[in-house]
Each structure stands twice: as structure tokens, then as C-alpha cells.
């Protein structure tokens, strides 16, 4: 078990190193000259060369990569080409916004998803079950950014209950969190339902029923608890997916997180910023997956590791 955990933790290092290489190479393959982007159209050859010198772009690729990796290990991704602000500083000032949004999204989806799943399982093959399942099917089939637009049309433009975009107050968080969490909620509802239906068939539930326990005690204490193992895993994985989902949702709601930063930097050919944001998102994703894996191994002692 301990060796498994050690191995699993250490496996992050080569993966992240690979991610760093891949991101570095891809970012440097992006067409367009960043020196030109900074200097503007009027800059002459000498000025462009000066900019390249300044940014280290004149160095051969492997030297640039070496600088990039050694910097990254110290948490230094250089400065933004367009604003001059250190990349790490900019990311750290935006990261909390993205985490807040992702956390709100996943909390919402857990509450909605679990409730809907439990209700559907209790009403198996009755109208309520069908309604929940059809709704869940829509939930996984809707583009979440479009759901966000619809929420804006209904709750912000028509009813005026929430602001259309921006951040700052808790009410700014509601619509983007719903847009972000709807897909995970639908996935969790489907999973909770099927997992509960599986557990309901098991012997210990029949025993509990035979002992004369009430249905609500059976559902909550016996069925739900045992159905949660796969659900917990998916919650973790969905949290990782939500981090990526914020890239588009932040655009819809003008949310000042790293997703918007990434898109803006991509459009501006701001290489250091693009590298930094992607690496941080990937690192967060890999760490979340790691925690899920470890948690899973603690939660389900039946799984053998070697």
C-alpha cells in the first residue's frame, strides 16, 4: 500500500516533465512573431532584434527550454510579453477566482446530482425516475456555455435576478456556477442512480429489510453509503474537468479567472503566460486525480495494489 502511494506520487514527476516539454514545443510552434506583436508594425529590424534579446528569444531552442524548466521549478515562468507582469504573480492573482468558481460548480452539482440520483433510484421505473433521467440526458448533451447564455437570458435579462456578468458579489457567482456544474450534476445523477440500484440488489439490503428496518434508514444508511464509492471518484474527476470547463464559462460571464487569461494570452501570442497557465491547470488536474486515486484506495479496501 505504502509502495503504491509512493509510486503513484512519484509518477507525477515524469508526467509533468512531459507536459512541460510538450507545452514548450507547442507554444514555440505557434505561428507569429512575439517580438513583432510587442514592437508593433512600425518597429524596424534593430528594434525587433533588441526585443528578442531582451526576452531571450534569440537563444537556441534547447537553451530556451533549459531556462524555462529551471525557471519553472523555482516557480518562475518569466514575465508576460504584453504587460511585463511576472507570469506567476498574474496567475496567482487569478487562480482563486477560478477555484472559487470550480468549487461552487462542483458543490452545486454534488447537491443536485446526488439528490436527483437518490430520488430516481427510489422511484425506479416510475414517472419521477423517467423525468430525472431525461433531464440528466439533456444535462450531458447541452453545451454548458449555451446553458450559461440561456441562464443569462432568463435570470439576468428577463427576470433581473442576477447580474449578467462580472464578479465581486456572491450573486455574480450563481449563474456561472450553475452553467459550469450542470454537466457534472447530470453525470452524478445518472451514476448515483445506477450505483444505488446495484446496491439495492445486494444481500445485506435484503437482510436489513428482513430485520424490519424502515425504508428511509435502509436507503440512507445502507444503500447510499455503499453507493458512494464510485460517486466519490467521479466527483473528483469531474472537479478536474470543471477546471478546464472554466476556460469557456469564464468567457461567457466575463469572470476574471485563469481561463480568460489563457484565451487572451493565446490570442496575443504571450508565450510565457500561455505556458504558465497551461502548466498550472495541468498540474492542478494531475494533483486532483492523484488525490482521487489515493482516496479511492483508502475508501475501498477491497482493491489490491502491488
Amino acid at each position: 500500500m505504502t509502495t503504491y502511494i509512493m509510486k503513484r506520487v512519484l509518477s507525477i514527476i515524469p508526467t509533468m516533465l512531459g507536459v512541460a516539454v510538450l507545452v514548450f514545443l507547442m507554444v514555440h510552434m505557434i505561428p507569429g512573431d512575439p517580438a513583432r506583436a510587442i514592437g508593433g508594425l512600425e518597429a524596424d529590424a534593430a528594434q525587433l532584434e533588441a526585443i528578442r534579446q531582451d526576452l531571450g528569444l534569440h537563444e537556441p531552442l534547447h537553451i530556451q527550454f533549459f531556462d524555462f524548466v529551471t525557471g519553472a521549478l523555482r516557480g518562475d515562468f518569466g514575465r508576460s510579453f504584453s504587460t511585463g507582469v511576472p507570469v506567476t504573480q498574474e496567475i496567482f492573482s487569478r487562480m482563486p477566482h477560478t477555484f472559487k468558481l470550480a468549487l461552487a460548480g462542483i458543490s452545486l452539482s454534488v447537491v443536485i446530482g446526488l439528490t436527483a440520483g437518490v430520488v430516481a433510484a427510489q422511484h425506479h421505473q416510475r414517472p419521477l425516475d423517467n423525468i430525472v433521467m431525461v433531464a440528466a440526458m439533456f444535462g450531458v448533451s447541452m453545451p454548458s456555455f449555451w446553458f450559461g447564455l440561456m441562464l443569462i437570458v432568463i435570470f439576468a435579462v428577463t427576470l433581473g435576478w442576477f447580474p449578467t456578468s462580472g464578479s465581486g458579489s456572491p450573486s455574480h457567482l450563481v449563474l456561472p456556477a450553475m452553467a459550469l456544474g450542470i454537466r457534472a450534476a447530470a453525470i452524478l445523477a445518472r451514476l448515483t442512480r445506477s450505483s444505488m440500484l446495484d446496491v439495492m440488489k445486494s444481500d445485506f439490503v435484503r437482510t436489513a429489510r428482513g430485520k424490519g428496518l424502515s425504508e428511509s434508514v435502509i436507503t440512507l444508511k445502507h444503500v447510499l453509503r455503499n453507493s458512494l464509492i464510485p460517486v466519490v471518484t467521479i466527483v473528483g474527476l469531474q472537479f478536474g474537468a470543471l477546471l478546464a470547463g472554466t476556460v469557456i464559462i469564464e468567457q461567457v460571464f466575463a469572470w476574471p479567472g485563469i481561463g480568460r487569461l489563457l484565451i487572451r494570452s493565446l490570442m496575443a501570442r504571450d508565450f510565457p503566460m500561455v505556458q504558465g497557465t497551461i502548466l498550472y491547470i495541468a498540474l492542478a488536474f494531475v494533483l486532483v486525480n492523484l488525490v482521487v486515486d489515493l482516496f479511492y484506495s483508502v475508501l475501498d479496501p477491497r482493491i489490491q495494489y502491488n
Binding site: G18, V23, M29, L243, A244, V274, I278, F285
Partner: peptide
Amino acid sequence: FMDILLAFPGILLALVIIAV
């Protein structure tokens, strides 16, 4: 190599490839 590709969540990888 697949592990590395899988470390990019969601549409992030597609995003970078399109940028290139």
C-alpha cells in the same frame, strides 16, 4: 506518452493544438 496527453484536462489540448 498517453499519460502526458491525458494530463491536459478537457478541451485544453485541442485549444493549444489549434493555436499552433
